[in-house]
Nucleic acid binder design. Structure first.
Lengths: 352, 352
DNA sequence: GACTGAATTTGGATCGTTCCAAATGCGCTA
DNA sequence: TAGCGCATTTGGAACGATCCAAATTCAGTC
């Protein structure tokens, strides 16, 4: 048995090691690595064997430094723990991986301070671009300060506050919030409801404003009046929704249905209704937004709007990659359509 | 108004630009950046002003190359879209961010081929370490080939197949599957059940074997017999669980309760039971594992085991960071305890 | 065997940072 | 004023890859 030189190497193997190992120059090895047609057949084989032997791993950071390129893209999300964004993230990662990019993850937990920190830290790693779903209340000026004007940014899901023409050069991928909420409202109207509330979300969030606009649009088109107490704000989570449930019934006429800001809020409202002895899907109709996995499994299953988050993730990645191809073309604003999924939570009004 | 030199710079600002801008050497600027006490007060102020003026951003890749260090950690998950892992990921990212590391994300979608590709691609970026929740059926030899022996790896959630003493040098963070399943089984026994099934999962998955062992342990401790047809295998998702539901009732005595492999399976089983006219939580008791968000919201709410995935994520990050501190210490195997959350799905047997 | 054009191969500079040993400046004392 | 110690500052060589222009090899032809 031949004794190979197998002293435990703790230093990383570099191009020079390979070059020395088979008596060629670093340049040649580099050409082999990149599959250049310039290298001769025999040399290529010899080098490739040596690469295998020594267990070489490519140092992409060094290459990127020299070539002044980048092979990473930053993905910054306001709430990774939310299943909607988790699916989105896995779609992004999938598409980026196929294109040879690596995903730098950052989760901000809806905190503007963390968002600033995360953006700063990620920028130091020189991503080729970034995909950002901003924290609530994040504004354009701060994001611009953190990201700079050179790095392409794709805004997902939410608009930034305080946007001016100067920094409106970013691409966008937004959901068709207004049309979605309109569809849901029209659906409830078609079922016979006349007193329909809009429940949840914050007035200063762009997506909430858009959804509310869709609701208003449908109500007005159907010539239905809207009572002020049918608009109840709450944080976009289950807990606060339960707490605010009562506010719906403070005035008359009481609503018989509610279009909810999103699924989390709708599920919370369901709990709140149960606690008041009102059975959702029988005594009261409601709809959500997002179609998170739980929506199909709640009791009753939730009528909602689906945006196929994984597909949106892929789309976001592709939009950004296109931007990297042509950095100079005009900014794009893409609106992804959403579809109504009718389930048992949207029942006809009790009187009908 | 003084006209500043504000020609649009498309080249990135480097140390040299700053150095030139205030007549010091690159070395000095570098010292300022790293907060060295060697630089004089006046110089420091001058340099810091210039950094701000020019909008300098640190190039960590270049620094890492020179220092032969790394500031990233790779996180490779078998299923990011699963809320359990999404929460875990956000815990990891949080803790890594605090420690100054950036997270390189990779999602494998339970595919061994993708796992290999993802590991290979991430390694080229030279992470300081990695956290891996392996795809089902992933084996130690292939992972070792992709990752190498130099980079610290923390295994989470699942064991690798074909592990030998040689490559068993990795740290681990596992859930206390056996104890968890035992707690659930004991809980059902305490409620009066005698015929308890173990439903779902694959025999060749390490976590499934452990959970099944916990179940067996509790049954034997209570001197309860176990019928072979009480062990039903299925893929760890809702769909297959619905399909396999019938198998529970092929023989006699029929079980009155089931310990399920995980929440997804338990929720599927619920649906299957409903379809057969059996009402879970009244006619049949069941428990899950993971405490995914849906568990609290199903009808009936699911008794399950919670592992607080976000906290586990932080823990995983901390374990890996410790390993980076002392690369030579003995491999650690950490078992995170789980807690039983009793909800309405675990009812007493109908006869009682 | 000298000459030519194409096919290969190569040294050395470079990307943006850090390291290191050596140089510089400064305030004091003798 | 020379000499000393201390606090600052600095040039130039790394890190591991790529680029580029120039050098070398190789057939084939006269």
């Amino acid at each position: 048995m031949a004794m190979e030189s197998n002293a435990p190497v703790h230093r990383k193997i570099t191009l020079s090691d390979i070059a020395a190992g088979c008596n060629v120059s670093r340049a040649t090895v580099s050409l082999v690595l990149r599959g250049s047609p310039l290298v001769g057949k025999r040399t290529r084989a010899r080098v490739e064997e040596e690469l295998r032997q020594q267990g070489y791993v490519y140092n992409r950071a060094a290459a990127n430094l020299r070539r002044r390129t980048s092979s990473s893209i930053a993905l910054v999300l306001n709430d990774l723990a939310n299943p909607f964004f988790a699916e989105f993230a896995s779609g992004v990662d999938e598409a980026l991986g196929e294109a040879g990019y690596v995903t730098l993850l950052g989760s901000t937990g809806e905190s503007i301070a963390r968002e600033q920190a995360v953006l700063g830290s990620l920028m130091e790693h020189g991503p080729a671009g970034l995909i950002l779903s901003p924290a609530e209340g994040s504004d354009a000026a701060r994001v611009l300060a953190a990201v700079g004007a050179q790095t392409p940014l794709l805004l997902f899901n939410r608009e930034l506050g305080g946007e001016t023409p100067e920094n409106a050069h970013w691409d966008r991928l937004m959901l068709d919030n207004q049309r979605g909420a309109r569809l849901a409202t029209e659906h409830l109207i078609a079922l016979g409801h006349r007193h329909i509330a809009f429940f949840g979300g914050h007035r200063d969030s762009s997506s909430c404003r858009e959804r509310h606009a869709g609701y208003t649009e449908a109500m007005q088109a159907a010539k239905l009046p809207i009572e002020p107490h049918w608009r109840v704000e709450c944080a976009p989570n289950r807990l606060d929704a339960v707490a605010q449930c009562g506010a719906l019934f403070f005035g008359t006429p009481a609503p018989t249905a509610a279009v909810c800001y999103n699924d989390a809020v709708a599920l919370g409202l369901m709990l709140g209704l149960y606690q008041r002895g009102v059975q959702p899907g029988r005594d009261f109709a409601l709809t959500g937004f997002d179609d998170i996995a739980e929506a199909a499994l709640s009791a009753p299953p939730l009528t909602t709007l689906t945006a196929t988050p994984r597909a949106r993730g892929r789309q976001a990645a592709e939009l950004l990659l296109q931007r990297l191809q042509e950095p100079q073309s005009a900014p794009r604003r893409t609106i992804a359509s959403v579809q109504l999924v009718v389930r048992a939570s949207s029942c006809p009004p009790p009187t009908a």
